[in-house]
């Protein structure tokens, strides 16, 4: 490379390019470090529950400015801002721990009203539509109801009582002649408020816990048809065949089963008999 053939680069231009390259390279390194820190810091622990109406986590961190106004307007001190190193949620973002203080589901949802940016979505107007998470009976080996005792506390404290949690009667195989009242959570009603988790009588960790729906829920098996659900027939346009009833004749509504009640042999007569079954619509034959 001979110097005569090339115009020497002007010192200003050379310095500009060098500075630009240095700045860009420095920013690339710093930016990658910041991005890596963010991707670590944004991992939300399963038991850190966002306030009602919170956007999903990806959008939440673009919207929440971490001002804490929701925390201030929460009348039950449920909400708190995450502290670095202790809580796991992104530093300064609001969350609550159901086992400590659950959401009391205020009718007027003051936390959502306080949010200046819409990180807590103002379209949530009925707290029963809140979707903070989903309660899961996570330890059936310890749950007193599952053991056949009658604790029922989670069922009793649920703000959507007998809808979000129902008690399903099952046979107690252990004793052989008792019932188990199994708490069953219904995902369409549960708001994730955490009152069940808070009030679970077990010491320490609760048997029922609120988890984010992404963890607590499976995807439905759309490729299976549930034949017992009315609006989901196994075969389209099922042919409605008449039901056969015992006895001569079929599907005779005037004389069901083929026997007109007054045509039955008189029992008082010799040779009369009583059928061992009763026929629908005959009002019983005995």
């Amino acid at each position: 490379m001979s110097a005569q053939n090339r115009k020497p680069m002007s010192p200003d231009r050379r310095r500009f390019l060098q500075d630009a390259a240095r700045g860009a390279a420095g920013c690339a390194v710093a930016g990658m470090a910041l991005s890596q820190f963010i991707s670590d810091a944004r991992a939300l622990p399963a038991q850190a529950i966002r306030p009602p109406g919170a956007l999903d986590e990806d959008n939440f961190l673009a919207a929440c400015i971490r001002c804490g106004l929701c925390v201030r307007d929460c009348p039950y001190d449920t909400l708190k801002l995450a502290e670095l190193g202790y809580d796991g949620a992104a530093t300064g973002t609001p969350y609550f721990t159901a086992r400590d203080i659950p959401c009391e589901m205020c009718e007027d949802i003051p936390c959502v009203a306080a949010c200046p940016t819409g990180a807590l979505d103002k379209t949530l107007t009925n707290i029963d539509d809140a979707d903070m998470g989903l309660a899961v009976l996570i330890d059936e080996e310890k749950c007193l109801n599952a053991l056949g005792l009658r604790c029922d506390v989670c069922y009793r404290v649920c703000p959507v009582i007998d809808e979000a949690i129902t008690l399903e009667r099952r046979h107690n195989e252990r004793s052989g002649h008792h019932a188990i009242f199994m708490p069953i959570v219904h995902s369409d009603k549960c708001t994730g408020c955490g009152k069940c988790e808070k009030s679970c009588v077990l010491p320490g960790e609760a048997a029922i816990k609120v988890l984010p729906r992404r963890i607590a829920m499976a995807d439905a098996a759309e490729h299976y048809k549930l034949g017992w659900e009315e609006n989901n027939p196994l075969v389209d346009d099922l042919i409605d065949l008449p039901d056969r009833l015992p006895g001569p004749g079929t599907d005779n509504l005037v004389t069901p089963g083929g026997f007109a009640p007054d045509a039955l042999p008189n029992q008082s007569m010799d040779g009369g008999f009583t059928p061992s079954f009763s026929l629908p619509g005959t009002g019983g034959s005995n």
Binding site: C27, A30, G31, L34, S35, F37, I38, S39, A41, R42, D58, N59, L61, A62, C64, I65, R66, A90, T91, G92
Partner: peptide, 17 residues
């Protein structure tokens, strides 16, 4: 850089640090 990371990560980037 901060604005670029905000755009790429979809977060308010500087508030993490």
């Amino acid at each position: 850089m901060v604005l670029a990371v905000s755009a790429i990560s979809g977060t308010i980037a500087w508030e993490f640090v």
